[in-house]
Design a protein around this nucleic acid. Structure first.
Lengths: 200, 200
DNA sequence: TTGCGACTATGACAGTTGTCATAATAATGG
DNA sequence: CCATTATTATGACAACTGTCATAGTCGCAA
């Protein structure tokens, strides 16, 4: 979420990226298309060219991008786990730490774009709602696979993956409201033993 | 959240109530003040009279109302627990069931107003952000007290309360995106044993 | 060159938004 | 009854919003 997207990325990609960035900070309603173009340093006229579906399409692609990004990050953290820390609790702690660091670095200005779109569009636009559902699935799937790889039996690993995503998402919400990391660390600490106890 | 607010409630109360209702369905940005007045069947001119602070004040009061409501509900569920089910897992299950029923009854059109305001206003308006923080605290406090009453030692009960709120809030988000109860029930089932194991 | 496609520029559109100024009405206490 | 306040009514304001129509520019192939 933090890599520079000024060059080597096409204007189209930058607009999707910027949309996700602005949405997770201000919400969908407060994010105008003109703002997106400006933030992406992309020409305004390209909006209707690349996104003929209008704002719905742009928001949908932003959410899809965020989902793929989150999935990639899970795989990366799983692969980067030290040999003596290959436990579910460590994977979860790494995920939480990522959000914690981002919260502190950005002074709690950024949330989760998928959560924002869910809250703002779940009842209005069905296409974007579907996009959020797929984004959550996209996030949960590699998590469940990772837990299985760490020794959690298969049907259970999926359930624990949804528990991880749920508590992480909720804790992020609370952290942003309180401008305090406490909820995130609490969730990580409390859930750790439960996760490790699920390995056979 | 479902009681009829047509009579015996002042126009002012109805507007706050309607604001919370509309916000948790459409988000803050998509909820206009004219919509709130119309939904509350209140005169439009009363808006600037009762809420001279503008939309910020109205949103803030709606969130505060939602926080108090949630707190009241926790106490009620705690008191209503059958004598042979006075365990933390049952309290949590009751809370989750409440949201589950509401999701099914309203076809997943309604979310949590506090979450919506957090996502939409955390970075924009600091007064409403503070309101969301207080609402979360308002919700967590009686939960921690309830856990303590059920036998969870004091410092731990607060941590488990934030874990409960976090996972519930996140699961509600996922449920709304997927239009499926599954995340809510999963969270309830998986967290139950952990909660009961904390009683001394 | 010519032509054709991809991309961009620009301005206008109708519909909102929140907010305010102003005035009329209802209620209440003297 | 009057006077004072609480509430409501109404219209207008400027500032947006997303979307569209139209024309423009660029690069590239024939």
């Amino acid at each position: 979420m933090t890599e520079q997207a000024t060059r080597t990325y096409s204007p189209r990609e930058r607009m999707v990226f910027s949309a996700a960035q602005l949405i997770r900070r201000d919400g969908v309603g407060a994010t105008g298309m003109r703002d997106v173009a400006a933030h992406a340093e992309a020409p305004r006229g390209s909006l209707q060219h690349y996104f003929p579906g209008g704002k719905d399409q742009l928001v949908g692609e932003a959410v899809a991008w965020a989902g793929r990004y989150a999935a990639r990050r899970v795989s990366r953290y799983l692969a980067a786990l030290p040999a003596d820390e290959r436990r579910p609790s460590r994977l979860f702690a790494a995920l939480v730490a990522q959000w914690t660091d981002e919260c502190l670095a950005t002074d709690f200005t950024l949330g989760c774009p998928v959560a924002a779109v869910t809250v703002d569009c779940a009842d209005a636009s069905d296409t974007t709602r579907t996009a959020t559902a797929q984004a959550f699935a996209c996030w949960r799937e590699p998590l469940a696979a990772g837990l299985a790889e760490l020794g959690v039996p298969r049907p259970r690993s999926a359930a624990l993956a949804t528990l991880m995503v749920s508590s992480l998402e909720g804790a992020l919400l609370i952290a942003r409201a309180e401008r305090d990391i406490h909820a995130l660390t609490t969730v990580s600490d409390e859930l750790g033993p439960l996760l490790d106890a699920a390995v056979t």
